[in-house]
Design a protein around this nucleic acid. Structure first.
Length: 277
DNA sequence: CGTTGAACCTGTTTGC
DNA sequence: TGCAAACAGGTTCAAC
């Protein structure tokens, strides 16, 4: 699943591409990642896409009020690997997601409002005081807090690690152990990194492409993510990796001092094979 | 309240 | 060379 900058990039691209289009029909493939697939078939046809917005890592397609009566129930379709929305200009909006980590739902106004309540602050907008209270009263690890969509919406593994490196904070530090200045630094670098990543149209590690089919460029600016064993851009110390909050976490052991008792994973051994570089 | 591990999927890379 | 394990932009839930 992409993170905030990638979703923002695709959202902007789709806004240009499908705003104002009308959905003609829906074709469903595998649907085990959709709570109520038939709701899509029932409620989407005939509706116009009136807004394309990002909310955290999700994209919201706001639809016109339902017009005529309910559409006739569509037949269940053969299994595909994606969802297709056929549009009134003959194009198709396709949802492809091999790992099926994405989610799709049809939500009317009230259920949508309920759903959105589950998410925390927008990391691009959150103010100093609120961010501080979200972090400094918590005894969870800062990495876990950054990844928790109930705390902040939109941050994932890449941008959590990049922000912590830039703020010189170790991912395993407890939120409550950050001082005011560290919390404020983290809030600012997180915002700056996300903004820069949006300008660069997101990070393409292996397969992320935007709405025009182009890769992003922010991976060129990654400072720690995926750089285990390579030298820190600030101090030249080899970057280490550890599992924090259940996720691979990259950090500089020199710039980001670990809490007591913390152990990083051993650097990958070059036991036999020589690495070319 | 917080952590860990498993489950959910499939494709690609790594390591023995 | 070949195959199994590890790993991947993530979330959720049970168990502790």
């Amino acid at each position: 699943m992409p993170e905030l900058p990638e979703v923002e990039t695709v959202t902007r691209g789709l806004r240009r591409a499908i705003l104002g289009r009308r959905i003609v029909s829906v074709e469903l493939g595998k649907t085990d990642f959709i709570d109520d697939p038939t709701a899509l078939e029932q409620h989407l046809p005939g509706r116009e896409i009136e807004a394309v917005e990002r909310f955290g890592k999700f994209m919201l397609l706001r639809l016109s009020a339902a017009s005529a009566g309910p559409s006739p129930a569509a037949q269940p379709r053969e299994r595909h690997t994606h969802v297709c929305l056929l549009l009134d200009d003959g194009r198709e909006l396709r949802f492809k997601d091999a790992r099926r980590f994405g989610r799709i739902a049809y939500l009317a106004e009230a259920p949508l409002a309920e759903e959105l309540k589950r998410f925390g602050a927008d990391p691009l907008e959150v103010k100093s005081k609120e961010f501080e209270s979200l972090i400094r009263r918590r005894h969870a690890r800062i990495k876990a807090l950054l990844l928790d969509q109930r705390v902040l919406r939109g941050v994932g593994n890449i941008y959590a690690d990049e922000s912590l490196w830039k703020a010189k904070i170790h991912p395993a530090r407890l939120g409550a152990k950050l001082n005011q200045s560290q919390a404020e630094t983290l809030r600012k670098v997180l915002r700056e990194i996300l903004q820069k990543a949006i300008v660069m149209r997101g990070s393409s590690i292996s397969d992320f492409l935007d709405a025009e089919g182009e890769p992003g460029e922010y991976q060129r600016l990654h400072r720690v993510y995926g750089r285990e064993g390579k030298r820190c851009y600030r101090c030249r110390t080899p970057i280490r990796r550890a599992i924090v909050a259940g996720r691979s976490s990259y950090f500089c052991p020199e710039c980001q001092p670990a809490p007591r008792g913390f152990l990083a994973l051993p650097l990958p051994g070059k036991s036999k094979s020589k690495k070319k570089r």
